[in-house]
Amino acid sequence: MRIFDPHIHMTSRTTDDYQAMHAAGVRALVEPAFWLGQPRTAPESFLDYFDSLLGWEPFRAAQYGIAHHCTLALNPKEANDPRCTPVLEELPRYLVKDGVVAVGEIGYDSMTPAEDTALAAQLDLAAGHSLPALVHTPHRDKLAGLRRTLDVVAESRLPVDRVLVDHLNETTVKEARESGCWLGFSVYPDTKMDEHRMVAVLREYGPERVLVNSAADWGNSDPLTTRKVGEAMLAAGFSEDDVDRVLWRNPVAFFGLSGRLALDPAMPEALHEGNSILRGGE
C-alpha cells in the first residue's frame, strides 16, 4: 500500500514517526504551514518556520525515504494578530520556491474580518502563482464556516477545482462536494474523523476527489491513520485500486496541479550509504 499523507505537521513529530510512517507505506507527504501552538510575535518567526519546511524537514524526511513538500501561508488564527500579518508581504518570495505545492493552510478560525482579508488575499496569491490552495474548515461552527469559505472562493480568481477543502466530515461533505472542490478528510483521534466513519463517507460519496490525511501535529494525534483508513477500506470491500486512488493518486493529482511535485526522495548515494545524521549527528 503506497501512501501519500497530504496533511501532516512533521515539525512536531519525531524521527520514530518518520520510521513508522515509512514502514506503513508512506512515501510522500505535504506539510502545511500552520499554528505552532505557541503564538509568533514577528514575521521573521514565520520566515524561520518556512525555511525549516523548505530545508530541514525535507532533509529529515529524505533520510527515511519519504518525499516532503509543503504549503505556505499565514494561518487563520494568526491572521488576527497584527504582529503577524506583515508576513503576507513576504509570501511572494516564498511561493516561487521548488517544494511549495500550494498556498495553505488558509481559511477561517473564528470568522473575523481579519480572517476574511487574509483568506481573500491568499487565494489571490495562489491564483497569481499558479498554485492550488489548501483551505481548512474551522473547528467550531463548521458548516457556517464552510459556506462562508466557499463564497470567498467563488469570489476569488482561483477556480474551485484548484481548492482542497480540508477537515470535512459528515455534516459538510455534501455541500463541499457540490461546489466542485477537492475533499479533504482528517482522520484524527477524538476531534475529527475516524477510519470507520471515513469508510462510510467513501461508501456514500465514492472516492472521486477525496483525500485522506492524518493531520498529525503537536496534539493527541496519530501519523498512521492514513494506513488505518486503507485497511478499513479493504476490510469493507473496497478494491486495492480504490485504496490507491484515495491514498496516492488523488493527492498526486491535486498537488500535481502546482507542477512542482518531485516524488523521488533519493539522496546522493555516497551520503546515503554513510553514517548519515540521526539524532543530531550521531
Binding site: 525555511d51 530545508g55 530541514w56 525535507p58 521548488d98 517544494g99
Partner: peptide, 8 residues
C-alpha cells in the same frame, strides 16, 4: 539565509 536546502 532565506533559501531552500537546494538554494543554500
Amino acid at each position: 539565509a532565506r533559501g531552500t536546502g537546494d538554494e543554500r
